Amino acid sequence: METDPVNARILTELQRDATIPLDELGTRVGLSRNACWRRVKQMEDAGIIRGRVALLDPNKIGLGLTVFIQIRTNSHTPDWLERFVKATRELPEILGAYRMTGDLDYLVHARVRDVAAYDALYQRLIRRVDMSDCSASFVMEEIKETTALPV
């Protein structure tokens, strides 16, 4: 599905506030309520809009430490990858896991309460998957983090 300028404006508005009433959304993008609803529905059906969520302040719910975990493995088998995927999807502290190019095999993004909570996450992760090297970097200052994609 093509993202024309009107759809791009709809997506931009929804990324700012997914709770916006259709009447207001239509007004902001220059469409009637029904035309706007049809476009939103089409983008949902096409998978462009994957869901609508509430964004939480991690500090206010006790998850003040952002961690990036760098993982290297000597095993590049389908079985290892399946265990790794399962582990990362089952550990709620892990927000993202990425297979990388270059020297690093995987990068994991996690949110935890503190260093002790990171250590507990680390212990649970290494019990599930073998790694040749695992190191972590703790975020000292969050300069920019957004969920909004440029459309």
Rank of each mutant, 00 (worst) to 15 (best):
2 E>S: 15
3 T>Y: 03
5 P>I: 12
7 N>W: 00
7 N>S: 13
7 N>P: 04
11 L>Y: 05
13 E>M: 00
19 T>M: 03
25 L>R: 01
25 L>P: 02
28 R>C: 00
32 S>N: 05
35 A>C: 05
36 C>T: 03
37 W>V: 00
40 V>W: 01
44 E>C: 06
45 D>E: 15
47 G>H: 14
53 V>R: 13
55 L>H: 10
58 P>K: 08
59 N>S: 14
62 G>V: 13
62 G>N: 11
63 L>E: 07
63 L>K: 14
66 T>L: 06
67 V>W: 06
68 F>N: 04
70 Q>K: 00
71 I>W: 01
71 I>M: 11
72 R>N: 11
75 S>H: 10
82 E>F: 07
83 R>W: 02
86 K>Q: 10
88 T>F: 09
91 L>D: 10
91 L>G: 07
96 G>K: 15
96 G>Q: 15
98 Y>W: 15
99 R>Y: 09
99 R>N: 13
101 T>V: 08
101 T>P: 03
102 G>I: 06
104 L>V: 12
106 Y>R: 11
108 V>E: 02
111 R>C: 02
113 R>D: 12
113 R>H: 15
114 D>F: 04
117 A>F: 03
118 Y>M: 01
122 Y>I: 00
122 Y>H: 03
122 Y>K: 04
128 R>F: 08
131 M>A: 04
133 D>E: 12
136 A>Y: 09
139 V>T: 15
140 M>Q: 09
141 E>D: 12
142 E>K: 10
143 I>D: 12
144 K>E: 12
146 T>I: 14
149 L>G: 12
149 L>T: 15
